[in-house]
Design a protein around this nucleic acid. Structure first.
Lengths: 123, 123
DNA sequence: GCTTGACTTCGAGTGCGCTCGAAGTCATAC
DNA sequence: GTATGACTTCGAGCGCACTCGAAGTCAAGC
């Protein structure tokens, strides 16, 4: 038996780390294109869907707001001509991520300093 | 004229990047010890208050929940004997920050890959 | 002496991103 | 045939961390 390319919402939830509730929500708000359905009307997810979800998850978990993500997928739907705009959007987001990395590192420094302080006073 | 060590809430807000509303909120929920007051009952912040606020801000902006921060300041209030517990709390948080840094870097890679892809197809 | 504006308290409101629950359908297992 | 359990839709609810607004006080400027 081969690996099937069509997964249930439960399996998709498990594999992507996005709850079934959230998967439906993402579809509802247009973040995910309507996925396929089986003969019983149940959602079926393909590898390409999974890939999309994974990437969206990465955008989300790096702090991109839902509305921004909606813009992004709108651009995808609008066709190839929007590639420069998509590039722009991702580059903007990358700047944000780089900034966050810097900030996190900065804060890490302060936390380390504090930890060292406690270590010295409580050996 | 020397730098005064006693700042208004507005100046403190400006210097720390925390709004006056939020400063009062933090005090209300016990994150900041009650600060001094001038003869008119207005809050006055000292350098030590600023330092505390700055550090709390760093904890907050690295994802520590308010409740956790409350635990931390409770430990400080409870005296020196809680230093090991504070150390523990900060070390736990550092682990979290390190994990987040890793995650952010990971996502950055995916974003970069996508950007490269768009750059290639839209030269 | 009145306006301005920065402050005070308090509780209520907001925005985001889920998260949940109710009520219903369907297919397989027993 | 009925129980189980995974799914469906839909709208409502939630938790977090602020954020705001109303109503009042006070001091300084004009």
């Amino acid at each position: 038996m081969r690996e099937v390319t069509s997964l249930s919402i439960a399996t998709t939830a498990e594999r992507t780390g996005v709850s079934a509730h959230t998967l439906r929500y993402y579809e509802r708000i247009g973040l995910i294109d309507p996925v396929g359905r089986d003969e019983n009307g149940r959602r079926t997810y393909r590898d390409t869907d999974l890939a999309r979800i994974d990437f969206l998850r990465k955008l989300r978990s790096t702090g991109m707001p839902i509305t921004r993500m909606q813009e992004y997928v709108e651009l995808i739907r609008a066709g190839e001509s929007t590639e420069p705009a998509r590039l722009q959007l991702l580059e903007d987001h990358r700047r944000r991520v780089l900034h966050d990395l810097e900030h996190l590192n900065d804060c890490l420094g302060a936390i380390n300093t504090k930890i060292d302080l406690y270590r010295r006073s409580t050996p």
